[in-house]
């Protein structure tokens, strides 16, 4: 993964909506990747060796790239390959790469359309689709499901499992803090403080959506989980059990209650697991989390 891609991912997270509006090449287009190679949606066979009937798609979070899923020292191993190794029929794993500064509902719609094209041209009929999302990626999955159901997409019928890993369904304390700071600073009578508020306000639509976990175009609109699909939630905690730092910061960026979607109301989860001592980023490539996901999905 080149440093230019990493830079583009970070910049896209901060101002990706503006970059896209300007037609700036730093804005990452949404692409499916297999082992770092772009997979054309219309002809995936050209990039995927031995495509399977079980397809796993990993979706990274804000300012991240598909490299966030790689296990240390094992660049080709991730949660998808671990599950595929354990399934009798195997599985094909793709990673999504996208501009995380765009509004989540826009990325959800684009992902839904992309999955429809991808599964339509997949060399073998896809019998089982598994979506895993880290952080914002989990919200993009929920948004794509909503868009897919609304558009009558066929891929929704193949979708069997969604795994949300450290996803701020009820918002992130850091995004809420940024919004509150900007509002307070902009109301102060000193111009230098108002400028600080305006600079914070430059953050992308994607970051703004993380304030409340908005996955639909309307702010604060609730969207339930797509039915007839198993939904799993993974939470991280900075400290050990009962450590007050967990209540303050959760996994560093997302509180446990938000990762569980407690304010979303009446979620029927097939599984939920919390991991003490694993922070937000390490949730995306940790052996203990991999074991839990394999136990759920295999």
């Amino acid at each position: 993964m080149s440093w230019q891609h990493q830079t583009s991912a970070i910049v896209s997270g901060f101002i990706g909506d503006w970059l896209e509006a300007q037609g700036n090449p730093l804005a990452l287009p949404m692409t499916f990747q297999s082992l770092g190679v772009k997979v054309p949606e219309a002809s995936p066979a050209a990039a995927v060796a031995d495509p399977k009937a079980t397809l796993i798609v990993l979706i990274h979070g804000l300012m991240e790239l598909d490299s966030v899923w790689q296990f240390s020292g094992q660049p080709d191993a991730n949660y998808g390959t671990r599950v595929g190794d354990e399934l009798a029929t195997g599985a094909s794993t793709l990673c999504l790469r996208y501009n995380t500064g765009r509004p989540i509902h826009a990325n959800g719609q684009t992902l839904a359309d992309g999955l429809e094209r991808l599964l339509g041209s997949w060399p073998v009929p896809v019998e089982r689709l598994i979506l895993m999302g880290h952080s914002m990626g989990g919200l993009v999955i929920r948004s794509a499901c909503h868009a897919g159901v609304g558009s009558g997409h066929r891929w929704v019928r193949a979708l069997q499992d969604c795994v949300y890993i450290g996803s701020p369904h009820d918002g992130s304390w850091l995004a809420k803090g940024a919004q509150a700071s900007a509002r307070i600073l902009k109301a102060l009578p000193r111009d230098y403080l108002r400028v600080a508020g305006e600079v914070i306000d430059l953050r992308s639509d994607g970051i703004r959506n993380l304030t409340r976990g908005d996955i639909l175009a309307g702010e604060g609109e609730l969207a339930g989980l797509v039915p007839d699909v198993r939904h799993y939630v993974v939470c991280g905690l900075l400290g050990r059990k009962n450590n007050p730092v967990n209540a303050l910061f959760g996994d560093a960026l997302v509180h446990q209650s938000s990762a569980r979607g407690e304010r979303q109301g009446g979620w029927n989860l097939a599984g939920e697991a919390s991991f003490e001592g694993i922070d937000h980023i390490r949730l995306a490539h940790h052996g203990a989390v991999a074991e839990q996901i394999v136990e759920w999905l295999v």
Partner: peptide
């Protein structure tokens, strides 16, 4: 990519100079 960086930096400088002035 470098054209994109140039565009972003020059735009940032144009906006940033006004904010720095304030």
């Amino acid at each position: 990519w470098w054209l994109g960086v140039g565009h972003m930096v020059s735009h940032g400088l144009a906006e940033g100079a006004i904010k720095a002035q304030r």
